[in-house]
């Protein structure tokens, strides 16, 4: 059964990898959903991360390359040290401009540029983390009709980032990594 969205963008920082590991097994290829994951991370662990994620899902997992088409049943991981922007023709642009909120990749930028293209066909999910990245992007995505999900701060290893989001954005769903039924229902409904 296909999802009611075409694109899911997940943003996470400290403490988010374990949550992503629980989510991606649910992203079956039959959902017909493209996924972009934006992690704050160090440069060294690129290929190991891709392998770890690929072992958890039937979707194709790859590091996002410049000009990649956003295809269903594919999971694109932002490369360390590049912003990921989405173009009108549903391709990826990598961008090496200034850090935003001390972050490159910036979760804000990916949420925001994805919302410009996908509007209500976009779902955003912001996870555990220690900085304020993601909140402005969620606000902008919300204005453009995207579906907004945030990890319940009480379940987050590092609650600061989702807490900021919950305080400033009217979220459509709070998710609990140990009970992802509602998350899946929201994607499908």
């Amino acid at each position: 059964m296909a999802a009611r969205f075409d694109l899911l963008v997940i943003g996470g920082s400290a403490g988010s990898l374990s949550v992503v590991m629980k989510i991606i097994p649910l992203l079956k290829p039959s959902l017909n959903l493209a996924t972009v994951i934006v992690f704050h991370r160090k440069q060294s662990d690129d290929s190991a991360l891709i392998e770890v994620l690929a072992g958890r899902t039937d979707c194709r997992v790859k590091e996002a390359d410049d000009k990649d088409d956003l295809l269903p049943a594919h999971i694109y991981v932002a490369p360390a040290d590049y912003h990921v922007l989405i173009e009108k023709n549903k391709t990826i642009t990598l961008d090496f401009s200034e850090k935003i909120n001390y972050s490159r990749p910036s979760i804000d930028l990916s949420f925001d540029s994805a919302a410009e293209v996908y509007g209500p066909r976009l779902a955003c999910l912001l996870l555990s983390g220690a900085n304020a990245d993601g909140v402005d992007g969620l606000l902008s995505a919300k204005r453009q009709g995207a579906f907004i999900m945030v990890q319940n701060p009480s379940t987050a290893e590092v609650p600061y980032m989702p807490q900021q989001a919950v305080e400033k954005v009217s979220c459509d769903l709070l998710i609990d990594p140990d009970n992802l039924k509602e998350f899946l229902a929201a994607i499908l409904e």
Binding site: L85, E87, K88, D95, S97
Partner: peptide, 9 residues
Amino acid sequence: YSRASIKRR
């Protein structure tokens, strides 16, 4: 130029 980048700038 990539539209997403240039628009943002």
